[in-house]
């Protein structure tokens, strides 16, 4: 088990390095994309900042608290996005038959897609998200202790799992239909947008959807109650605030199970 994990980690590293070397062949495009990503994400947070500068505050929320929500969501999204490019181009691979090549290699297909064309130029969003997360964490007045640092890390990892799971689900649909499925971006990119703001500003059905169906609230809004020692925020029992971000891993596992079903269907239809 451990040997297998180490072997897969090494292969992932080599494949990711190969992607970077390939991208490095087109240096100008690489530099421009990284820069544009950084500018775009900075402008995004600039918009939130401008809201605060103009209107003072969202009811009951300080800018630094929103920065923590924003930072967690964006770092998680950037991490997931780095490994999601393969899933992004996957529908095209089904159409052209290139997916067959992945099936001929002795590795799980989801693993190969996660390692396919890893995009280092997406560091823009990661750097910006991390910077805002650190800034928010310093300004928000949290009593930092080991447990809270660990909780924050689990939130980021759990969030990355959820976004990754959503990318997997989106790609899985391509096993059933070759139609374009940009509608799913509502929960991926839209989910990231949603998670950048406090949940209280949304309508109840919307909150419920992003707590239970796509549990993005569980990786930033709910555990924020534990981080800030303000249990009233989530309205849940205190232990749940601490445990909520752990849903990330099972969510991803469930998505990968559905992926397996899709793969089995592919094997029986060949398209």
């Amino acid at each position: 088990m451990i040997r297998s994990v180490r072997r897969h980690a090494r292969i992932y590293g080599r494949l990711a390095a190969a992607s970077v070397r390939s991208q490095w062949q087109y240096r100008a495009s690489f530099a421009l994309y990284s820069a544009s990503q950084l500018v775009a994400t900075l402008a995004e947070f600039g918009a939130i900042w401008a809201l605060y500068a103009r209107f003072g505050s969202l009811p009951g929320w300080r800018l630094s608290e929103v920065a923590v929500l924003y930072g967690i969501s964006n770092v998680a999204f950037a991490l997931a996005e780095a490994g999601a490019r393969g899933f992004d181009v996957f529908p095209g691979m089904v159409r052209t038959g290139d997916f067959d090549r992945l099936l001929l290699r002795p590795l799980p297909t989801a693993f190969q897609l996660a390692a396919h064309d890893v995009q280092i130029m997406r560091v823009g969003r990661l750097a910006q998200g991390a910077a805002i997360l650190v800034w928010g964490c310093m300004g928000v007045g949290i009593q930092w202790d080991a447990a809270r640092v660990a909780l924050l890390a689990i939130c980021v990892v759990g969030g990355a799992c959820i976004f990754a799971g959503l990318f997997v689900l989106q790609a899985t649909l391509a096993f059933w239909t070759i139609e374009s499925l940009e509608v799913v971006n509502i929960v991926t990119y839209g989910g990231n947008q949603m998670a950048q703001y406090p949940l209280t500003i949304y309508r109840p059905w919307f909150r419920l959807f992003f707590t239970v169906a796509v549990p993005l609230a569980a990786i930033n809004y709910v555990p924020l109650a534990a981080l800030l020692s303000r249990p009233d925020l989530s309205g849940l029992p205190a232990p749940l605030n601490w445990l909520a971000p752990c849903v990330g891993a099972p969510f991803l596992a469930a998505c990968l199970r559905i992926w397996k079903l899709g793969e089995r269907r592919y094997a029986s239809t060949g398209s």
Binding site: R14, R101, P106
Partner: peptide, 19 residues
């Protein structure tokens, strides 16, 4: 099945890892 933008030998080395 080779990596389009990489030298041939790099593709071979990657396949060694994969298998």
């Amino acid at each position: 099945q080779l990596w389009w933008d990489l030298p041939v030998i790099d593709s071979f080395a990657l396949l060694r890892e994969i298998y």
